[in-house]
């Protein structure tokens, strides 16, 4: 029986195993080498794989991500770390105009096998520029894939899947989960775009991803105490998201709540709700509801941040509302 790992160690393990399996895999990012990364997700990798493949970069997000694209076009499989997802704004040209489009605009001549790992999410009182959940931006860009592992097992498996995928993948890790403990299975299937039924239920479906999975689990426990059996779909992949799994759950429960930590307006939930409305309309016995963050920047103060983050209370209320 393997010893439980922390989420952040599962990330490091996945990076290590991927580098051991494929000499083209390299790491780039601010303080990822000697310092082991600000969250220690790359600890030990410099010693294991050397300074050429584990590169500390200057604080130059735009060019380091652009360089990863160039390296990917020249035979490498770079895994870039952006220290906080908020900083990805500086690298948007590289991600959106270069990485996402190279395959398409060059007529399929190449793929861009790179990964951009970055932590999102609140819970650490890191304030408005260190806590945002911006994954919907990337899910909106054709050519990118987006994944958000919620469990320790997925932190390993989905990062391996992302590194093995031929196209650019944005791997979003919720920093509040880094200390989470769990087991990994290095041989688990590593499919792109497959959701996971976290809990089966018949009365309503909660579609979620990332750290909100834990709020959904707490909500489902409380609902179960009242005789309401909620099914939880952990999306895992946001682009492509598992329509088949979501529609199958809707066909079973006829009620859906989509919960995520990102701002609700124009978020991932909006796309899923719209697709359910168009493609699973006749299965619905209640309006599709969303639970997300309010339309304001995330605030610093403990009380403000706590009020901001979607929690079990709001998910319980939403599920009940679909059952009204």
């Amino acid at each position: 029986m393997p010893k439980p790992l922390r989420y952040v160690n599962a990330v490091a393990q996945a990076l290590n195993d991927a580098m051991a399996a494929d000499p083209a895999v390299m790491l780039m990012g601010e303080d990822v080498a000697a310092a082991g990364g600000p969250f220690k997700a790359t600890r030990g990798l410099l010693d294991a794989h050397g300074p050429e493949r584990v590169r500390d970069t200057p604080i130059s997000e735009a060019s380091l991500v652009g360089a990863a694209v160039g390296a990917a076009l020249t035979g490498m499989k770079p895994v870039v770390e952006i220290m906080f997802m908020d900083f990805v704004t500086l690298a948007m040209d590289a991600v959106v105009n270069q990485a996402a489009k190279a395959r398409f605009m060059f007529g399929g001549q190449c793929s861009v096998p790179m990964v951009l790992r970055t932590p999102h999410g609140g819970g650490l009182n890191a304030g408005p520029q260190h806590s945002q959940c911006l994954e919907a931006w990337f899910a909106h860009i054709p050519g990118l894939r987006v994944v958000c592992p919620a469990t320790v097992a997925d932190a390993y498996s989905l990062l391996r899947a992302a590194i093995e995928a031929p196209d650019p993948v944005v791997v979003v890790e919720n920093k509040a989960l880094y200390a989470l403990q769990g087991d990994i299975d290095v041989n688990a299937p590593r499919a792109v775009g497959k959701a996971r039924i976290d809990r089966a239920g018949r009365d309503a479906t909660i579609v979620t991803y990332g750290a909100t999975l834990y709020a959904a689990r707490a909500a489902a426990d409380r609902l179960a105490a009242e005789g309401i059996e909620a099914e939880i779909v952990d999306l895992r992949w946001i682009q492509p998201w598992d329509e088949e799994a979501v529609f199958a759950s809707v066909a079973k429960t006829h009620r859906v709540v989509i919960a995520h930590e990102a701002v609700q307006a124009f978020g991932v939930g909006a796309e899923i709700a719209a697709r359910i409305a168009s493609d699973a309309f006749d299965d619905l016995d209640a309006p599709v509801l969303r639970v997300g963050a309010p339309f304001m920047p995330i605030a610093f103060a403990k009380t403000l941040e706590a009020a901001y983050l979607p929690d079990a209370d709001r998910i319980v209320a939403a599920v009940k509302s679909t059952l009204a």
């Binding site: 006829h254 309309f281 006749d282 299965d283 619905l284 016995d285 209640a286």
Partner: peptide
């Protein structure tokens, strides 16, 4: 709609 033209509120699943 009802025979008097009033819209009947019903869910898609209920209609099906």
């Amino acid at each position: 709609v009802r025979s008097n033209g009033e819209r009947i509120l019903s869910t898609p699943l209920a209609r099906r």
